[in-house]
């Protein structure tokens, strides 16, 4: 009886914690500046990965044509299984040399908690960069200009 009460309390806290952790997010303005390549607009996926570099959450998808999602193969392994609705965090692709600015909502409890922020990019009939840019999800990293290794020239973020 006592034990079960404890369990209930723990469960209740756990649910509350899970509830709160899902809802408390920090807004960041994120600018992605692409390199001057020629061809179609680039698909960019921004995800959070856990300490084992397993996908944990999709923050932003740049690219509206779902037919191409499976070409972004690493992320597709995570997303493709359940395919939750992404409409709220989807934007149009931009071409080489252009930039986009978006609001991304990062769960506050994942900042400075050993998670990673990954930017992966792909362009139709061109390369796919799994880790065009990957950084540790730390408060410090979120305020710096970081250079990409694929189609991304740099990413800049600011707390909103």
């Amino acid at each position: 009886m006592k034990i079960s009460n404890h369990i209930l309390v723990v469960l209740a806290f756990g649910v509350l914690a899970a509830f709160t952790s899902q809802n408390i997010t920090s807004n960041y303005k994120c600018m992605i500046q692409l390199k001057n390549y020629t061809g179609e607009g680039a698909y960019v996926i921004v995800s959070i990965l856990d300490s084992h570099e397993e996908y944990s959450e999709t923050l932003y998808v740049q690219g509206e044509d779902k037919d191409w999602f499976n070409e972004i193969s690493e992320w597709w392994k995570f997303y493709g299984k359940y395919r939750p609705n992404l409409d709220a965090i989807t934007g149009a692709t931009v071409s080489g040399g252009e930039r986009t600015i978006n609001l991304i909502k990062i769960p506050t409890d994942k900042i400075d908690a050993g998670y990673y922020l990954r930017f992966e990019t792909a362009v139709e009939d061109q390369e796919y960069y799994t880790t065009d840019l990957q950084l540790e999800l730390t408060t410090e990293n979120l305020t710096q200009k970081r250079e990409g290794s694929g189609f991304i020239r740099y990413v800049k973020m600011i707390a909103q």
Binding site: K29, M31, R99, I101, K156, I158
Partner: peptide, 14 residues
């Protein structure tokens, strides 16, 4: 018209 990302000197209207 793209607005400057921040109020830094090196951010511009595009």
């Amino acid at each position: 018209l793209e607005f400057p990302f921040s109020e830094d000197e090196d951010e511009y209207f595009l």
